[in-house]
């Protein structure tokens, strides 16, 4: 079966995020960018499905500026077979991303679409679910285990009260959580090979989607900084301070 994986280019998770002095956003100039960590987990899961003989082809898609091709190449180096780049310099919000992906899904007809549960920039946690709704597919969100079984897929989900397993008709959408797998690193030969794998570029207009944002960001501020407090000498002093100074016990 064909598996479609969506990946997003975001700020590297190790980078210290700085708000721009004019409060219009976060400073991304000369900042290290990378594949969103949850998307790495999505790629890894698809590659494992292929290694198990469950997936026959892995198509990776990314929406974003020219530079997002780096993340597609990374996914190709990790084992995806071909890439689709939906190229745009505009800000693409979740609903519009889901519409673009829907259009790709209609063309590619994958049996399974795997996405990260959230991107670590906008922290929205929406796109996979929106794509599932727009295409009428079932969804297994926050997945920690994915088992394809004939025309169904069983997904174990990390939920507030523990774990929950659902059975979904295929085609379905899965969004990944942290415990689904541990992504591998791309080997040098595979990075070289990835350069030759097919990568097609399309525009939102080609896909017939209007990406004009519905949400406008009025301002972006730094959070109120917490002041570091005091160091206590021992446990007795700690308990005394909690009881008599902070009055929280």
């Amino acid at each position: 079966m064909k598996v479609l994986v969506a990946v997003k280019r975001v700020i590297d998770y190790n980078v210290k995020v700085r708000v721009k002095p004019d409060n219009t956003g976060v400073d991304l100039a000369n900042v290290k960018m990378a594949m969103n960590p949850f998307c790495e987990i999505a790629v890894e899961e698809a590659v494992r499905l292929k290694e198990k003989g469950v997936a026959s082809e892995i198509v990776v898609v990314s929406i974003g500026p020219k530079a997002a091709q780096e993340q597609i190449r990374t996914a190709l180096a990790l084992g995806a077979d071909r890439g689709i780049h939906v190229e745009t310099d505009e800000e693409v919000q979740s609903l519009e991303a889901a519409k673009l992906l829907k259009s790709v899904v209609e063309k590619e007809e994958p049996k399974l679409v795997i996405l990260g549960k959230q991107s670590i920039d906008s922290d929205n946690n929406q796109t996979g679910q929106m794509l599932a709704a727009l295409t009428g597919m079932a969804q297994g969100t926050f997945a920690s285990e994915v088992v394809v079984d004939g025309e169904k897929v069983n997904v174990t989900r990390e939920v507030d009260g523990g774990l929950m397993t659902v059975s979904l008709n295929l085609p379905a959408v899965v969004t990944t959580d942290l415990r689904l797998n541990e992504p591998r690193y791309a080997s040098l030969p595979n990075i070289m090979k990835a350069k030759k794998k097919p990568l097609e570029s399309v525009s939102p207009a080609d896909l017939g989607v209007d990406v004009a944002p519905r949400l406008s960001t009025l301002k972006v501020e730094a959070p109120a900084a917490r002041q570091a407090g005091v160091k206590v000498a021992d446990v007795a002093e700690l308990v005394d301070k909690l009881k008599n100074e902070a009055k929280v016990i």
Binding site: L95, Q126, Q129, A133, Q139, R214, L215
Partner: peptide, 23 residues
């Protein structure tokens, strides 16, 4: 914005063709 709301609300937004404001 617990795991239940995060799961179904984006579907609601998509079905109504509106954006969602998360969290």
């Amino acid at each position: 914005a617990g795991t239940t709301g995060k799961d179904f609300m984006p579907r609601v937004a998509a079905l109504l063709d509106v954006a969602q404001v998360s969290d």
